[in-house]
Computed example of a mutant assay.
Amino acid sequence: MKTTVLDTLKNRRTIYALGKNVTASQEDIANLVKSIVREAPTAFNGQTTRAIVLFGDKHDELWDIVVKRLKSEVPTEEAYAATQAKIASFKAGFGTILYFTDEAVVRNEEEQFALYADNFADWAEQAQGNVQLSVWTALAENELGASLQHYNPLVDELVQEAFAVPANWRLRAQMPFGSIEAPANEKEYMADEERFRVLK
């Protein structure tokens, strides 16, 4: 069987050592993200996923917001120093993608298709997974490193205010990306017999 997609997926790794040594233009990267969000599948074709791509000062502003907000959450100065170093590694990247779910669309689907109402929030999360993996893999295909971060809901209101995010967009994840300045750590896999069953 063909393994081109599998090979590309294997190349997608969590990269923490990010840099700004990127040859692709901001416009090309933004267009790639737009195209993937547009093409990624959603239940009932609900198209619930939204994205904001941050570059330059806006990218820096996001991570300044995060590190400032986290100061009140960590117990010691030593712990906060470690937090600052971690956030600095994200800020060192070329940009960040913010992923949102449009909850107004989810609510509308729940009303329009009452029989399946209990499922639409879950399906919106599945749509997030579809988009995030697809973007992440496409970045890797273009030799860009990335990681997936989750500082929501701690920073939701601050992000909404800073970037004029509509009130019905719920922040789901943050994906800093950039040049790969150091490779990913080794990846460990569970035993196949613990994860898979093939029945005939």
Rank of each mutant, 00 (worst) to 15 (best):
A114Q: 14
A121Q: 13
F196W: 08
R172P: 03
E27H: 10
T3I: 04
D102W: 06
E125C: 10
R13Q: 13
E194H: 12
V67C: 08
W123M: 03
A164G: 01
V5L: 14
V37M: 05
W169D: 04
E27D: 15
Y151S: 01
L98K: 07
Q128E: 06
R172V: 10
A43Q: 05
P41D: 08
F94W: 06
R50N: 04
N130Y: 08
A92V: 09
V105D: 06
L54T: 03
N168R: 12
I52T: 14
A43I: 00
W123A: 12
A82E: 11
A114V: 10
L6G: 11
A191D: 15
F100L: 06
D57T: 11
A40Y: 05
G46P: 04
A85V: 04
Y16T: 07
R170W: 03
Y80T: 04
S35D: 12
P153C: 00
R107F: 02
S35H: 10
H59S: 01
P166R: 06
A182C: 03
H59V: 02
T101C: 09
A127L: 02
E157I: 12
N130R: 07
I87D: 00
N31W: 01
E39T: 09
Y99A: 09
G93F: 03
F120V: 05
Q26I: 00
W136H: 10
G19R: 06
P75K: 15
R170S: 12
A117V: 04
T76G: 05
I180P: 01
R13M: 07
Q174W: 00
T3F: 06
A124T: 02
D28Y: 05
T137M: 03
A43Y: 00
K34S: 08
E194K: 14
N185H: 11
Q126V: 00
E143F: 02
A138K: 13
A191T: 07
E161R: 14
A117E: 15
R12L: 08
